[in-house]
Structures are given as C-alpha cells and as structure tokens.
C-alpha cells in the first residue's frame, strides 16, 4: 500500500464537555474508497468535518496530503483546496447561477481566468449529466440536480480527496440513483473518497473498506463482503439487521 493521504492518529474531540470522538485512528491510501456508517449521533459527520477542519479537534493528529491540521491558516488554505466536500443539504449559493457556483472557487481561490474556469465548470456539469442547467439558479433545480451541481462545484477545485456527508439522504428515491451513479463513476476514475452513507448497495459496489462507528469510536472496519456477510462485532450485527 502506498503512503496514506489521510493519517489520523489518536484523535479526540469534545463539544464543550461532550466527548464526541474518542481515540480515532484511520489511514486512507490514495484512491481508496471508504464508506462510514453508524447510528445517528455516533459522530460520523463530525469525523469527516474534522478532515477539512470545519471542526477543530483537541487531541491527536490529523495529516492530509502530508500537511498537519493545526491552527495555521496557511495549512488550512492548502487543505481546503485539496479536499472537496458535498453536504447533505447541498448548500448551494442561492444568489448565484449554477455556473457561478462552480466557478467561484477556481476564480477566487485558484485565481484562474474566468473563461478557463467556465470551460472547466461546463465540462464537469456535463460529467454530472446536467450540461443544460448552467445558467439557472439553484432554486430552479430538483434536489437530485442540485446535489449533482454540488458535486460538480466541489470537483471544480480539482481536489485529490472528496468527502461526502450523507449526500443522498435529503433526496427522493428516484433522485438518489442519479446522484449515486455520478458517485460510482467518480469512484471508478480513482478519486479518493470518504463517504458517510447508509446506501449499502453503493458500499458493496465501490467501497474498499466499510467503517462502522458508534458512541464516537470506530467499532469495526472491514472489506465490504466481510463487513456485510460476517460482521465481527455484535453491535455491527445489530445495526446491520436494522438497516438492511
């Protein structure tokens, strides 16, 4: 296995006095796809939000692409532009067109010329199969289309790693598929992905490893076949019997 691109070592995080993440250890290799699941409130979102430092941890180390996450602003900028993130609630900017949403980061962070940024954005919008919506506003799109815009927007930064926080759980069933198809394609192209999701079909299809979390810790991690057919831990078994 090549050098890990994400290295998390004995990381702990508290919200006030509430111990949300306890002694998390996790290494992710380049191109690896990881699916994280677990009951509500177990700390899945908090874990992946720590990876691009939307949340700050208090103990232990997180290293992304060899850069240590501490308070330093320089490191923060480097990491944010290497890591793309897709949210459950899309969080598109409602006052900007789809194209403007996608070109925001290339123009303002990477200082690309506008024409080049737009060309890239249109290519990526075509890749997520909504080439015709570029000049609409987010409010005019369906949920599935909005989430695909959000994916394209994150891809426009040309990130090395993509984080997904339950990208399909605010969507209607028929829209879930259109988003998952895009994610599968992305996985097949070799993107490093960390994905919080309860779409077990997706996990079986693309994941290299499935991680189960409860009470702020990683209870079990395993390859998908082993994880689903033969969970090692009673807690995992109980959880799987409820979601499958």
């Amino acid at each position: 296995m090549s050098d890990p691109v994400i290295r998390i070592n004995k990381m702990n995080k508290w919200f006030g006095n509430f111990h949300v993440l306890r002694d998390i250890n996790l290494n992710v290799a380049a191109g690896e796809k990881i699916v994280i699941c677990g009951p509500s409130g177990s700390g899945k979102s908090t874990l992946i939000r720590c990876i691009n430092r939307l949340e700050a941890h208090q103990e232990g180390e997180i290293e992304v692409e060899g850069i240590t996450l501490d308070g330093s602003l320089k490191n923060l900028e480097d990491i944010r532009s290497n890591v793309g993130m897709v949210f459950q609630q899309f969080n598109l900017f409602p006052h900007m067109t789809v194209l403007e949403n996608c070109t925001l980061s290339p123009i303002w962070v990477q200082q690309k010329p506008k024409a080049e940024a737009e060309k890239l954005a249109r290519e990526l919008l075509a890749r997520v199969r909504i080439p015709d919506q570029a000049d609409k506003y987010p409010g005019q799109l369906s949920g599935g289309q909005q989430q695909r815009v959000a994916i394209a927007r994150a891809l426009c930064m040309n990130p090395r790693i993509m984080l997904f926080d339950e990208p399909t759980s605010a969507l209607d069933p028929e829209m879930i598929k259109e988003v998952l198809d895009v994610m599968v394609e992305l996985a097949e192209e070799g993107m490093t992905m960390l994905c919080v999701t309860h779409e077990m079909g997706f996990a079986r299809q693309v994941a290299d490893r499935v991680i189960f979390m409860d009470e702020g810790e990683i209870v079990e991690e395993n390859a998908p076949e082993a994880f689903f057919s033969n969970p090692e831990n009673e807690r995992t078994q109980l959880f799987l019997s409820q979601v499958l």
Binding site: W14, N17, H19, R22, D23, D214, N233, E234, R235, T236
Partner: peptide, 18 residues
C-alpha cells in the same frame, strides 16, 4: 464474535472547558 464496550468518555482538556 466480540461485543462492543464503549470507551469511557474522558473529560475535555482543562484549557478548553470551564
């Protein structure tokens, strides 16, 4: 098959609370 016993919660580092 193993069971799951959660790691007991620790208090947050002193300089982040109180």
């Amino acid at each position: 098959m193993t069971g799951f016993t959660p790691t007991p919660a620790r208090p947050a580092p002193a300089n982040t609370v109180g």
